[in-house]
Design a protein around this nucleic acid. Structure first.
Length: 731
DNA sequence: TGATTGGTCCTTTTT
DNA sequence: GGACCAATCA
């Protein structure tokens, strides 16, 4: 029995739903009903008699896959076994496979390590090799890890990564390479897989075991991959391996929403899908069901200014609705107050669950969080630091991890550190002695420090019994709580609540391995109770795939959005633009961008003027209203589009902020800074920043350039177009 | 020798 | 607020 979905879906969506044989690529613009299409396709497959357990649904988060499965189940009615659909992230799927089959080159008990574990291992390696002693500019563990990981994800030699993206680290290339190798050896020795290993180890496994590969291919008759524009090379190869060349595989994505190239995501995957899977059918979903025309007009403008071309023309029939607003608070501090006020106002019209505040980086919401707490507005925050990274959570988990893997040295250091008189050195010796059976050293310390005796006794007690994750955690928390209160006298109640949450999560697991892996691979939520409807605060990256009636985006100023780290290369700059595009397209009915006029500088106790983000400056005035915060409080409109969409006639060039000019003539030309080599001075052009003055030469191949409106930048020569000799002569 | 303390710098995004 | 280092303390 097959149902007719034609009343619920448009023709392109229907085509995607019914195209179940062979490879299919769906290019789905923002808000084009992508999720709906996947849900209906799942339902259709099952109605066709495909067994749910032979469908593999790879998504960006497990939450996304669960939501799709739930909706498909709602559509079909319960009892269709949709829970048996295999789904989740590539990483979680890989771990599931690797738990059952040991890949060549790895021991058979494998643990997943997260970012901070990986950094600890690098630090360990650094100390062992004696690198960077006394050298303040030696790269930090996290920088080293960034580059090592980038090299793997992009599959470029480390040296190429360094010279393309972090040329200042080139002098350390040899050391970084050695550290990377040592890090790799350490992981393999104790069976620790980092995020990248999960993918590569699965690939190695599938390539090394033909029988397994055949079984996997037979098992998954249908493979569906969401957010395909954010997959990297190894993920694309995994899809190819699992589906097979002519297999039934559907990739869904949107090249305009690619925002993960920093971790190796490759838009090329989506573009070359038709070549990799010959005979692939390409279907485009371009009708937008999410946003009103004013919002769509605004978001189309963001892409229209792109230096890299995207052919995207989303359209909608939803004409009405308010014009997007650009709101200019006096500073980022008053921005927090204004946003909180805006939320209060929006709540009159929308439930709290339909309101979101988005930002580029986790720390940008701190002021707002304080403000919301003051007003008693409940919110949930996504992205930024994970709560598993909080010190007390890591402390408690260290106990668990030692039980699982006694050679987990970073965890030993954590649990031993609070003992008086034990620093890194002693702790390392203690661990070696414990593991090698050198009782003498250990016993002498046990006599000296009763805490150590108690700690080891406690661990032995835990080891002697097989506790469920929940009970185990309970014991550990009981043991740990006195320490907690001593160490964090100010805010231990908050931390205790966090541990309580951890207990809730643990209680949902039967196997310790899975509990630990999920903590690293997913963001599990404490179970029990209906999730209360609250306002969402989220990084843009974490907002991917979600939508709200009302969306506010904050801190749209230079250095914050685009991030100052993303200003060196055109590709990075353009990714920031897509990020803003993703953020704005989350909104259904109301969209506001906050552009503070000044930012508060910590430490200096002053505010400094801020420049509006170039993305905002580029948008033609007829697409938004502008409001500014008054000194007397409140907002007043400074620029407006009373009726929507006047013909985009003479585009106003982005207005330069009027400066308080005391000396009118001299203000325009900045005094020329001292140049190391006057013969190279001159002007140059950059794709993103425009015309700038060369201020200094940085050998071998960089220039420091002053770009009006952007400030000083260090740029590789290859990205600059020098103005010719003749131009200089005449100037 | 190794632990502790105080000062300085930086602080993107995620599996 | 944390990571890292140098100086100081046991």
């Amino acid at each position: 029995m097959t149902r007719d979905f034609s009343s619920s879906l448009n023709p392109s969506q229907l085509e995607a739903v019914y195209a179940t044989e062979g490879p299919v690529l769906v290019i789905a613009g923002a808000g084009s009903g992508k999720t709906r299409t996947i849900v209906y396709r799942l339902a259709h497959l099952v109605e066709q008699g495909v067994s749910p357990s032979s469908i593999l649904l790879l998504t960006f988060t497990r939450k996304a896959s669960q939501e799709m499965l739930q909706r498909a189940a709602d559509l079909l009615g319960e009892g269709r076994g949709l829970a048996r659909v295999q789904g989740g992230t590539f990483h979680a799927f890989a771990y599931g496979m690797l738990r059952r089959h040991t890949p060549p080159g790895w021991p058979d008990r494998l643990t997943v390590i997260d970012r901070s574990d990986a950094e600890s291992l690098i630090r360990e390696a650094k100390a062992e090799l004696g690198f960077g002693k006394g050298d303040r500019s030696f790269p930090k563990a996290s920088t080293i890890l960034d580059n090592v990981s980038k090299s793997r994800n992009k599959e470029f030699a480390l040296r190429d990564i360094l010279s393309n993206e972090s040329f200042h680290l080139l002098p350390y290339a040899d050391e970084i390479e050695t550290l990377g190798d040592t890090y790799d050896r350490k992981k393999r020795a104790c069976g620790m897989l980092d995020y990248d290993d999960l993918l590569f180890a699965l690939e190695t496994l599938l390539r090394s075991d033909e029988e397994l590969l055949t079984n996997v291919r037979r098992r998954f008759e249908h493979v569906m991959v969401d957010e395909y524009q954010d997959t990297n090379l190894v993920q694309a190869r995994l899809v190819e391996l699992i589906a097979g060349k002519g297999g039934n595989v559907m990739a869904v994505g949107d090249d305009a929403q690619s925002i993960y190239s920093f971790r190796g995501a490759n838009v090329q995957n989506i573009l070359s899908f038709p070549q990799v899977f010959p005979g692939a059918r390409t279907i485009r979903l371009e009708r937008n069901y999410r946003s009103t025309q004013p919002i769509l007009g605004f978001t189309n403008q963001i892409l229209a200014q792109s230096r890299l071309l995207f052919e995207k023309k989303l359209w909608t029939e939803d004409e009405g609705g308010p014009t997007p607003q650009i709101i200019r608070p006096l500073s980022d501090l008053s921005q927090a107050r204004l946003v909180a006020g805006k939320i209060v106002e929006l709540r009159k019209e929308h439930p709290p669950g339909e309101i979101a505040v988005l930002f580029r980086a986790g720390y940008q919401s701190y002021h707002l969080e304080v403000e919301l707490n003051k007003l008693g507005i409940r919110f949930a925050k996504f992205g930024g630091l994970k709560y598993t990274e909080a010190a007390h959570i890591k402390d408690v988990l260290s106990f668990v991890r030692i039980l699982r893997n006694p050679s987990d040295t970073p965890s030993w250091h954590r649990v031993l550190a609070p003992i008086k008189g034990v620093g890194p050195k002693t702790s390392a010796r203690l661990v070696t002695s414990l593991l090698s059976g050198d009782r003498e050293y250990v016993d002498s310390w046990r006599k000296k420090r009763p805490e150590l005796d108690a700690l080891l006794g406690f661990l032995d007690e835990l080891r002697s019994r097989e506790y469920s994750p929940g009970t185990l955690l309970e014991q550990i928390v009981k043991f740990y709580t006195p320490q907690l209160e001593e160490r964090y006298p100010d805010d231990y109640p908050r931390r205790e609540a966090g541990l309580e949450e951890l207990l809730q999560i643990a209680a949902g697991y039967k196997e310790l391995d899975l509990f630990l892996a999920d903590l690293s691979l997913e963001n599990p939520e404490p179970r029990g109770g209906e999730r209360e409807e609250v306002v969402t605060l989220s990084t843009i990256h974490s907002s991917k795939g979600l939508e709200w009636n009302a969306v506010c985006i904050i801190d749209l100023i230079e250095d914050r959005f685009p991030s100052r780290h993303a200003m060196n290369r055109v590709e990075e700059f353009e990714e920031e633009r897509r990020l803003l595009y993703v953020a704005c397209t989350r909104a259904r009915k109301y969209l506001a961008l906050f552009v503070p006029k000044a930012v508060y500088r910590r430490g200096k106790e002053t505010t400094e003027p801020a420049t509006a983000s170039p993305f905002v400056r580029e948008i033609p005035g007829e697409y938004y209203e502008e409001w500014q915060e008054n000194y007397t409080g409140g907002l007043s409109q400074t620029k407006g589009a009373p009726e929507y969409r006047r013909p985009p006639s003479a585009l106003n060039p982005p207005q330069q902020r009027t400066k308080p000019s005391g000396t009118p003539g001299a203000a325009a030309s900045a005094p020329p800074p001292p140049a190391p080599d006057p013969s190279t001075m001159g002007f140059c052009n950059h794709k993103v920043f425009g015309r700038g003055k060369i201020v200094a030469v940085i050998p071998p191949d960089k220039y420091r350039v002053n770009f009006p409106g952007f400030g000083l930048k260090v740029i590789l020569a290859q990205y600059l177009e020098m103005e010719g000799e003749q131009g200089r002569q005449s100037g």
